[in-house]
Simulated scan of single mutants.
Amino acid sequence: MFIQPWDAALDEAEWQTWIAAGHDFGQLSVNGPPGRPPTVVPTHFTTDNGDLLIHLARPNPVWKVIEHDPNVTFTVIGDYAFIPGPWRAKPDIPPTDGVLTSYYAAVQFTCHAHLVDDPEAKAELLCRQLAHFQPDGDHALVAVDRPPYGRMLPGIRGLRLQVTDVRAKSKYDDHKPVEQRADVADRLTERGQDLDVPTARHQRRRLDRLGPWKP
């Protein structure tokens, strides 16, 4: 992932807060065997003491690939929007000469994958995921010897992804003038399509912290 200086995370807290704010779905990318393309799996995840926790169906072909090479990448992308050229045109040029771009936030984790096959460990992993995704506790007890989850555990495998490196990017034209960035955020809010509003919020947060870009 290419990161310009003005797109870099302002600090670790920025991307950690962003992930914790509900950005809990991403893509697991695993190196394929020689001559084969990488395997990519979209999935939800949770965090635990800096690790990422995932579970997938046992028939998933990704397991053989991970056993071949446990060095994986997990990528989370959000707060994205298409920015049309006229929104970015400088005041002294025709709006149609403006150059389009994409805004987005992304966090890319480099990880070492550890397989979780022990039934008790899988039950604990599911408990941690349910605590995140169903915090009200509106689910049956997850235990090896209790239905309904007990009989389902053999059908899944767990993954604990030990994070070895993190690269975070927020691509929101932070090197452009303050007035232009604020104007684009207003336009996104007004357009209000798909992820326009959270994209505008992310841009405004960066704008408030950075102000004018200083190399």
Rank of each mutant, 00 (worst) to 15 (best):
E124M: 05
H68Q: 09
N31P: 08
T39S: 14
N71C: 11
R201Q: 10
I66T: 01
A89S: 12
L115R: 13
P42M: 02
H44R: 09
R58Y: 04
R146I: 15
D11T: 03
H139K: 09
R191N: 06
I3N: 02
G150R: 08
G211E: 10
A106K: 07
V197A: 08
H55I: 06
E124Q: 10
T39F: 11
A21D: 12
L125E: 02
D136L: 10
G211K: 10
Q162S: 09
R206V: 08
D174C: 06
M1C: 10
G192N: 08
Q203M: 14
L161Y: 03
H44G: 09
I77D: 00
L141N: 06
A121S: 09
Y80N: 14
C111E: 09
S170M: 07
G22E: 14
V178Q: 02
A140P: 07
P215V: 14
R201H: 08
K171P: 04
P5D: 13
V65L: 06
T164D: 10
A182T: 02
T43P: 06
L159D: 00
A105F: 07
L100Y: 08
D92A: 10
N71G: 11
Q108K: 13
L100G: 11
L10W: 12
I83A: 03
N60F: 06
G35L: 12
P148G: 14
K64C: 01
I19K: 02
K64T: 03
D136T: 11
L130W: 08
I19Y: 01
F25M: 10
D174Y: 04
I3E: 06
D173C: 05
P148I: 13
Q134W: 04
P177T: 09
V62L: 06
P177G: 00
A123G: 01
L100Q: 12
V184N: 04
G211A: 09
I19N: 12
N60E: 12
Q16K: 08
P94W: 04
F82D: 15
Q162D: 07
T39K: 05
P70C: 03
Q180W: 05
P34L: 03
R151F: 08
R191K: 05
A57N: 08
V142W: 01
S102Q: 14
L52P: 01
A168W: 00
D11G: 07
D174A: 08
L207S: 00
A9D: 13
H55R: 00
R128G: 03
L161T: 02
L210T: 09
Q108N: 12
L28H: 00
H44I: 05
I93N: 01
C127D: 12
Y103W: 12
L195V: 10
D118L: 11
I3H: 00
G155F: 12
A123L: 03
V116L: 05
P94G: 00
A123N: 02
L130H: 13
Q203G: 11
